[in-house]
Design a protein around this nucleic acid. Structure first.
Lengths: 229, 229
DNA sequence: GAGTGGTCTAGACCACGAT
DNA sequence: TCGTGGTCTAGACCACTCT
């Protein structure tokens, strides 16, 4: 078992402090951490730089380093379950269908594979407090996740994380339209009601991981995205 | 006139190289930059760290540092003009109205000011190739931009940048609904047509800068957001 | 083997904020 | 005045890739 890098060890120590502290609380000073871990100051700064870049900490020259507001942390690539949980919703997920299909030109381009490559198509309905929120159609490379159909996981991103396939990059395209008949039936909405659509393409490095189209009811919890500078 | 910090000088030099190079092209190695600028390697790394964090460069251990794909650079806080330009649209902006109003409870909370604080309300219509794209209602602190009404700038974010007030943080809330009568008229759309709504709250540090509600035609260029991490 | 980025040391001086 | 973060030096050794 490999020993953790020093800057990682310090980073996770300070992250732990930040998570159990209220926003605005000061973290140990850089020189305190130098003494505590017996490292050079540049190593401590490397650890803190990462947490500042993540939005977990804020530095104030001359004053110190402080825990940042939680709701100011920028949005990262995560699954809808976590995104909605962040907005305070407990989400139930129902798998509507899982089947294989051959990639057409658009999906093949999105995944960077040849036309005809085998993909999973996984349809899910999400509910909060018994009411339908959204309907998703997720495409995944079948060869990468051969066992998906046998036991659909409660959270896609948790399952990807466990296989070291968590996306590191995603492009979301947002639009609005009216619900189709099939969507309206599953979302318990009226045909022609407006819906919010999100098309997501997610990769890990150059590796295509996920293409998902999600259709949200207009009166559901809206999508929140936090950006930085 | 203050001399630029070394790491800033190096960062902007390399950013210039990156902007005029194709994605995948190698940048000078860290030791090359050490020689070129006569600095320590940690200083070069500080400069490159910033560009890697921005998504401009990618490091590949053992191989080198390379220009990242442009369309993989994560979305930052920018104005709609720049966002749409990034999608290849040339946008025309028409000011519909500018007037003052007193902040109600919701706006006061968003800006962190008292109820009754004076704000600008700036309504704009954006068009591309002669067709309406979206309708915006922007709220700004009147005291911060006293001269806005006299000469509405073509780009809000450029005007804020010039005053050192460019937002460093924004929270977007996205939803769908049907167009109101007034919106439909301005957007040249039918009443009841679906629209995409974006509510943005933007700040610079603790300073509230902008609250904007934008309504997009359903058939307009959809919003694109690129995430990392 | 030569070159690359990744990690780390043990200092230094500065500007700034609080007291 | 003292502590803080911001900047910077001049090295070091490592794992990795490429040839």
């Amino acid at each position: 078992m490999g020993r953790a890098l020093k800057h990682v060890e310090i980073r996770e120590y300070v992250r732990g402090l930040a998570l159990e502290s209220a926003p605005g609380v000061a973290t140990p000073s850089e020189r305190d951490l130098v003494d505590r871990f017996g490292v050079a100051r540049m190593t401590v700064r490397q650890a803190l730089d990462a947490l500042v870049a993540e939005g977990v900490l804020e530095r104030h020259p001359g004053r110190g380093t402080f825990v940042a507001d939680r709701d100011r942390v920028p949005t990262a690539v995560t699954g809808l379950s976590q995104e909605l949980a962040r907005c305070g919703l407990v989400v139930e997920t129902r798998t509507i269908a899982v089947r294989r299909l051959a990639a057409g030109p658009a999906l093949a381009a999105a995944f960077g594979v040849e036309v005809g490559h085998q993909l999973w198509l996984w349809q899910r309905l999400r509910l909060a407090e018994g009411r339908a929120i959204c309907l998703s159609e997720t495409h995944l490379p079948a060869a990468m996740l051969p066992d998906l159909v046998e036991q659909p996981p409660p959270s896609l991103y948790a399952a990807l994380e466990a296989r070291d396939l968590r996306p590191t990059w995603a492009e979301d395209t947002l639009s609005a339209r009216t619900a189709t008949e099939a969507e309206a039936a599953l979302l318990e909405a009226a045909v022609g009601e407006p819906v919010l659509c999100r098309h997501r393409r997610a990769t890990r490095g150059q590796l295509g991981i996920e293409v998902t189209d999600t259709v949200f009811r207009a009166d559901a919890q809206p999508l929140q995205i936090t950006l930085r500078g």
